[in-house]
Structure formats: C-alpha cells, structure tokens
Design a binder for these strands. Structure first.
Ligand SMILES: [Mn+2]
Ligand SMILES: [Mn+2]
Ligand SMILES: [Mn+2]
Ligand SMILES: [Mn+2]
Lengths: 159, 159
DNA sequence: CAACATTGTTAGCCAAGGCTAAATTATTTG
DNA sequence: CAAATAATTTAGCCTTGGCTAACAATGTTG
C-alpha cells in the first residue's frame, strides 16, 4: 500500500493546491460523477420532451434530433430506452408523451436547470455562455449547492 | 419541419421557464456537453497522476485505482490510452510520469478545479459537498464563467 | 532464497451512445 | 389517388469505459 492518508480536510480559503483528500472521500467524488453521467442524458431528453410539449404542443423525434444535434437514428434508439424506463409513451409516427414519472423528472430537471442558469446570469455570465455552461453543470450540482445558488440569485434580485 | 424559432434570448432575471432557444443554439449547448464528456475522464486521470506525483512522489496504477474507485484492469487499460495520447510515459511495473503535454494538461486542470472548488467554498458550500460538486462541474465551466468565479472568490476574500 | 503477498497486465465480456445506410410508414400534393 | 416527400425505424458498425477472472511480474519476509 503506497497510499494511506487517514485524515485531511484543510479548508484554508485559497491555497493553491490542497493536500489529497482521504482515499475513500476521493473515490466517492469520482463515483458521484460517474453516477451523474449515467442519468444525465436521460434527464436531458425528458426535460427537452417536456419543454417541447409545453412550448410546441408536441414532441416529435425529428425535433428532438435537431435540438440535440444528433441523428434521428440515435433519437429513435433513445426513445426505445425511455419507453423501457416507462418515462415516455409513444406510438410509432406520433408525438411522444410523458408518463407521470416522466413529468416529474422533467419538472425536477427543468427547475434545477433554471436555478443554475439564472444563477450564472446573476453572476454576470453572458446569456449564451450561461446556457452552455448550465447544460453541463446542472447534472453535477448537489441539492445543497442548488439551494445556495437559488438564495444567492434571489438576494441579488432584491436590490 | 415542426420547429423553427428564429430568435429568443429573454434575459428576464427569474422567469420560471424561458422560451426554447433557437435550434442551432440549443444543439450547440448539447454538443458542447458531449464534447466535454469526451475529454473529462482523461483530464481527471492526468490531474490525479500529477497530484500523486506532487504529493506522494510517485503515481502507481494501484493508487489510481483506489482513488478513482475503479478496478486495476480499468486503470491499466486507461494507462495504455494515456500512453497512446502521449500524455504519460510508463515502464511496466514502475511509477507513471507525465510528458510535457501531460504536465500542461495537469496544471490547467488542477488550476480550473481549484477555482471551482474555492468558488463553491466561498459561496458557503460545505467542504465535502464542494469537493464532490467541483469534480463534476469543473469540466463544464467556460473560461468566461471561470474568470468570473475567480474574481468573485478574490473579492469575497478581500473583506 | 522460497513462499507468499502485492501489483500489474491481458482476455473476454457488457452497456451506452454515437454513426450511416437501407427499409418502412405517413403525409402531402399534382 | 398515385407519386413524391418527409418522418421514423431498423440493422449493423464503432468507441468508450466499466467489469471479472486468469495470468505474470515484482517485492517481502520467515
Ligand atoms: Mn443538461
Ligand atoms: Mn473531474
Ligand atoms: Mn478534477
Ligand atoms: Mn458531466
């Protein structure tokens, strides 16, 4: 064992480079990221389908492909997966709809996405940049951080 | 074409849900995320190897496996890839080292990681949470946002 | 220094998420 | 209403990043 660091949580406010965290904590960091990556594409699809239903009244595979910037074949395959996960219902050649579980996921994801996006805007990030960053960041923001972002945004607005 | 939205950039400060962005911009959001996901694991490995070299003097496959929370076989395969990308040099059964390109990537990634981590701490996120969130967020933060985070952190410290 | 423990590699498997090309099914229109 | 067009699905391919099990090399120690 080359490595054994029982304890190290220096919260010095701005040191250039902290000591390595304890092995278990470090592994947990990466595990959480791997976990987020398993669900984030699913969340983005469900969120997008919800948005299309809200703003366009229907969610067609071709629209999803255009908005995702991905081939129709890729979308078709993903729709099969969403179906198996019982997040959407679909009849061939018809608009998609969200199941109850799908709607819940869509709302949660949308709310989280909006908090992150508005937080970035409030910080002063340009809109186009904020949208790009929020699309990736949203999946890696804990509830704790999300609440802080929300509070921050509200406080800034109240001025 | 069911979908055609020429222009929509409402920067209203906290509307519940914005209109859909134009298709091309929307597709660009997802494309940027897909792109980040292609490089982020590589960055995390290189960053970790750099950190192990700095803090431990050597970077062994077993340590990486423990810290990443992943099997040794997975690490072994990834090392082959890092070799092919000429980011590390390795002789079998010896510590890894970073090439010049690898060192540069390690430093860039580490700096970015630290900015995000310290920003979250400054916001008031608990250390363990901040570490987890930073590990995922770092790969989805634009240079623009990074600069703003850095400035914010420095301003808060100067009080 | 031989046995045991640790470390590293290889082989072979799997699922996810891309792609292109071809086939199928609606929809629109002359 | 038949033909052309558009939308969707399927088939088959690829890369990435996991895994386990078996094997190989190195290190440690009685
Ligand atoms: Mn997203
Ligand atoms: Mn990371
Ligand atoms: Mn990192
Ligand atoms: Mn990510």
């Amino acid at each position: 064992m080359t490595d054994s660091n029982p304890n190290a949580s220096p919260s010095a406010p701005s040191m250039p480079s902290d000591a390595l965290p304890p092995v278990e904590q470090h592994a947990q960091q990466y595990a959480t990221v791997r976990n987020a990556h398993e669900t984030e594409l699913i969340e983005d699809y469900v969120e997008l389908i919800g948005d299309l239903l809200t703003h366009r009244g229907e969610a067609r595979a071709a629209d999803i492909a255009n908005r995702m910037g991905v081939s129709q074949a890729t979308v078709s395959k993903m729709i099969r997966r969403l179906n198996e996960l019982e997040l959407v219902t679909s009849k061939p050649y018809r608009s998609l709809f969200l199941t109850a579980a799908g709607q819940e996921m869509a709302e949660t994801s949308r709310a989280r996405h909006d908090v992150v996006l508005n937080f970035l805007r409030t910080l002063g990030v340009r809109d186009a940049t904020a949208r790009i960053d929020a699309e990736g960041m949203e999946h890696h923001v804990s509830d704790e951080t999300l609440a802080i972002m929300q509070r921050f945004t509200e406080q800034q607005e109240r001025r």
